[in-house]
Design a protein around this nucleic acid. Structure first.
Lengths: 225, 225
DNA sequence: TCAGGCCCTGAACGCACCCTGAAGGCACCG
DNA sequence: CGGTGCCTTCAGGGTGCGTTCAGGGCCTGA
């Protein structure tokens, strides 16, 4: 079992390597983001332990880049406990799991083992509905062959709708899934974001993928409109 | 896919259930630790979402007990961010993964899916009567192969009739189910809406799915007319 | 055959729902 | 520390849809 550790803090990196070797993993270490990215690309690791905060390229970016390039090695993200960290964002960029610092070796190794057991994640299916296409791994969206730039919220909303093609999703369901489950703000925000999506995905292409079902919710046409 | 949610905070439990159901999981909820333990023992769930802090028995204990008894259903632990929580302990007692509150649905569902490696979710059954078809999920209606546009009320009425094919439903029953049970308006509204349905579903197709049973109510022909 | 009741029909009203544009606030980046 | 982009809030306007209403037709029982 070969593992790559990408971690700039020398002490921690050395400790990790020592610990993992003791657990029976062949372990390589990269101290810089760019090195890590390169090594991950060039070698068939069974798993990658990836720090979030790195000089050069940060963990998110490395993760997203690898996935974009078709590298599906399981990734375990290391994150600082106090920092601003959105677990959803980590998972969305293609990480398979994460551990917050400070962590125990027991937890780390347990998770790493689980990750390896699960194997190299199958490439997450690209979602499509007609000529509308969304790739959850690389966080990119296309209308036919045209790449469309979406913000994080817009993507979350689109992804949610695309995971239920043809079904009507109520405003409440949308709020609970795309925003927090206890979101207490103005529900009108859903309408605003539906509009944003329409402006980017429908209007320029003279399509109407997103239908309003008055009094019920919104539906993404399963043929993309 | 059957999921058990053990969570004492009613709001969160309800939100979780609703969300998971929307994601295609058949979801049961237990509000007490003891109930949860019992349900987990007695039913073949595909996964269990387990809160750590519970009245009666806490999550650790439930987890450990189940494992001790040979129940190996995948367990996803819910933990408070600020609380005393040792991830190693959770994993040691037999949990397979954990999520810290507050969490986003995206993260939760991603982890749950990973946990049970699920396939495509089932959708609610499509109702049909002869060549009349109604899909509750997409809120769409067809007469043979033709899509028919209905408003919310029209659909509610049609759905009610289609759930009792061949039975005569009295105007009062209809009022209580399709409108509010304490609806105090003009009962003539039922007639108005029956007419709307006939105009959209029967007349253009020269059929008569909806029969008037004078003095009693209305009946949807089980062969669609 | 007549009276009464039940149902049908078309139109009109008003509100709730959704759309829309703009602006404030916050985080991130230079 | 200023600039930019994104998330969110807010208020105004349009209209689809639910509901009401009145008039007329048709069935039923005496």
């Amino acid at each position: 079992m070969r593992v790559l550790v990408v971690e700039d803090e020398r002490r921690l990196a050395a400790g990790l390597k020592k610990g993992l070797v003791a657990e029976g993993f062949a372990t390589d270490v990269a101290l810089h983001g760019t090195d890590g990215l390169w090594m991950a690309r060039e070698n068939p690791y069974d798993a990658i332990v990836l720090d979030l905060m790195l000089p050069g390229i940060n963990g998110y970016k490395i993760c997203a880049t690898l996935r974009e390039e078709g590298v599906w090695t399981p990734i375990l993200m290391l994150t600082a406990k106090d920092g601003e960290f959105d677990e959803a964002e980590a998972l969305d960029t293609g990480a398979d799991d994460y551990v917050t610092k400070p962590f125990s070796y027991i937890a780390l190794v347990a998770r790493l083992r689980a990750l390896i057991r699960r194997g190299a994640g199958e490439r997450p299916a690209v979602l499509d509905a007609g000529d509308l296409r969304f790739d959850p791994a690389s966080r990119r969206t296309w209308r036919s062959e045209t790449l469309v730039e979406l913000t994080a919220r817009e993507m979350a909303l689109l992804e949610f709708l695309m995971r239920h093609p043809g079904e009507v999703m109520s405003k409440n369901e949308i709020l609970e899934h795309v925003w927090d489950y206890d979101f207490e703000g103005d529900p009108n925000i859903v309408e605003v974001y539906i509009r944003h999506l329409r402006n980017k995905l429908d209007r320029p292409f003279e399509r109407h993928a997103i239908e309003t079902v008055r009094g019920v919710g919104y539906r993404l046409a399963d043929d993309g409109g």
